[in-house]
Design a protein around this nucleic acid. Sequence first.
RNA 1: GCCCCGGUAGCUCAGCUGGAUAGAGCAGCCGCCUCCUAAGCGGCAGGUCGGACGUUCGAAUCGUCUCCGGGGCGCCA
Length: 577
Amino acid sequence: MKNIIGKVISQGLDTLIEEGLLSKEAKDSVHIERARDRQHGDFASNIAMVLAKQAKMAPCAIAEKLLAAMPSHASITEVNIAGPGFINFKLATQTQSAIIDTVRQAGEEYGKSKVGAGEKVMLEFVSSNPTGPLHVGHGRGAAYGDALRRLLNACGYEAHAEYYVNDAGRQMHILAISVYVRYLEAAGQPASLPANGYKGAYVSDLGAALYTNEGDDLLLELATLFADLPEDEEASIDALISRVQTGLGEKKYGLVFDAGLNALVEDIRQDLSEFGVEFETWYSERSLVDKGMISAAVEVLKSNGKLYEQAGAWWFKSTDYGDEKDRVVLRANGAHTYFAADIAYHLDKRQRGYDKLINIWGADHHGYIPRVKAAFSAMGEDAERLHVLWVQFAVLYRGEEKVSMSTRGGDFVTLRQLREEVGNDAARYFYVMRKPEQHMDFDLELAKSQSADNPVYYVQYAHARVCSVYRQLEEKGLQPGVDADYSLLGEQQELDLMMQLARYPEVVEKAARDYAPHQVANYLRELATAFHAYYNAHPFISSEENLRNARLALIDAVRVVIACGLNTLGVSAPEAM
RNA sequence: GCCCCGGUAGCUCAGCUGGAUAGAGCAGCCGCCUCCUAAGCGGCAGGUCGGACGUUCGAAUCGUCUCCGGGGCGCCA
C-alpha cells in the first residue's frame, strides 16, 4: 500500500521537476507514514513541507501543485491537503481488506521477512556466573535475549544464542570452598563458612550430596585448615582456597569444584529451558584456557604492538581507542585477567563465522564496554560488528520495601520462584514489555497478587476469544465459508483492524532493527484493544451468511497475527482461558 | 570528579531517525451481561513532556547548560 502511494507521489514529483519547480533531489525526500489519526486518512506524507525551503514556496502551495500533478489510482479514493501541508491519502476498502487473505495464507509465516539476508548473528546473553541459581534480574536478560533472537530470526537473520560459562575465575573457587565447608558440616565436622562465602541453602545441599557420594574421602585436618587465617575477609578466603587445594590435591579438589559447577550449570540450563529459553551453545571459559586461546590472543595483541609491560604486568593500550585508561591483561603473578579471556572469546566468536556479535549485559558491566570494543578493534576486527546492549536491573520491591539481592548472601528471589508464582507467560511478557534500558520496578506483591491484571492476559484473551467464536460456530452446526465478500466490512472497527493487521510486518522489522521487542508487546496490546472493541460492538455469528463469513475471516486473521506476535515474545497463545 | 541510562497523567510506562489536538494500563468516577468467555466494552476526569537557553516553518523528540534518581569507574568476575 505504501508502495502505491510512493509511486503516485513520485510520478507527481516528476512532472513538477520537468516544469522546473523542483530539483531532482526532491524525490529522495519522499516519506510516507501511517496517519496517526483516523480522520486524517490512512497514510500521510510530509513531502510538501520538506520541499518548502528548496522550492521557496509555501508548503500548501507545493502540496496543491503536487496534488494536481499526481495521477489517480484505483486504490486511492481520496487525497487532500491538511494542517501545515500534509498530504493525506485514503485507501479503497477493497485494497485494505486484501490483508485478510494475505495474513491467513501466510499463517505463522506472516510478518517474517528476509531483510537479515541470512547474516549470522551470535547473541550472547544471561552468562551468569554459575555460583548460584538464576534470580529475577537474570530473568530479564533471558527474556529479552530470547525475544530478540526470535525477532532477528523472523527477519531473516540466522541468530544463535550462546551462554558463556564463567567457570575459570576466583568466584568459582569461592563457590568450591563454600561447598567444601558445607561438605565438612555434613560430615559432622565443626567447620564454619567464611563471611564472604556463598550462603545459599543450595550450597548446603551440594555439600550434603558431596558427602553422600564421597563419604569421608575428602576430609582434611580441621585445625590446620582454619588456623591463623588472615583477618582481611578476601585474603582469608583466598588462603582457605589454597589450603584446600594443596590439602586435597588436584584430583580431589577437582571433584569438589566440579560438584558445584556442574550442578549449578545444569540447574541454570534446566531453569532457562523451562522458561522457554534454549541456547545453541554453552561456551566454557575454561576451554579457552585449556586450548591456549588466551595466550594466543595475547600474542596477537603483542605482535600488533598493542601491549606493554609495566610493574611486572602486561597492559593493553585501550586508551588508543578512547577508553579511560589502559587495562591489564596479564597480571604480575602471571595469571590472565577476565578481560584477557574475554578478548580471546570475542575473537573466537568471529572465527566461528559470526558476522555480527550481540552481547547482552547487565547494567553493572557497561563500564566494561569500551575496553572490549577497543580490544576487538586492536585484534583487527571491525568494531561495528560488535554490539553490546545492556539491560537495566529490575529493582525488586515487596510492596513498599526494596528487596536486597545478593548471590553470596543467599538472599534473593530466584527466577524459578518467580515463574512458579506468576507463570512463564506473565513473567516473560512483563520482562519484555519495557524497553531494556529502562529501570524497572518489579513489585513482587503486585506481580503475585494481581497477576490477573497483567497485560499478557488481555492479549491472550483476544486470541482465546477468536478460538471460542469458532467453537461456538461449530456447536451451532455452521461452517466458516470459503468465499467471503469483504466489501461488507465497512465498520470503523473493521477498518481499524485491517490497518493494524497490515502494520504488523513493519512493527516486526522495526523492533528487530531497534533491538526492541517491547515494540511488539505494545503493538499486540493495540491490536487486542481494536479486537475487543470490535467484539463488543458487532456480533460475528450473524444470521446473514455473507457478512458472517467476512467477519469470521477478519477475526481469524487477527488470531493469526496475535499468535505470531506472542510467539515472537516467547509467550503462548492459548485457545481457551 | 569523569562516563553511561533514566526523569512524560496520582502510580507503572509507551512515544524520541522533528511534524497535525502528547498516548496506554493501573488507580478514581459514571454506565454496559435475556446476546459469540465482563480476564471484556463505552464514557468522564487527570499533563509546566524535570528546568533554562538554542537550532527550525515546526521540538517530548535535535544541541548546549543545569537539577534530580540509578549505575559504572580493580593486577574482581
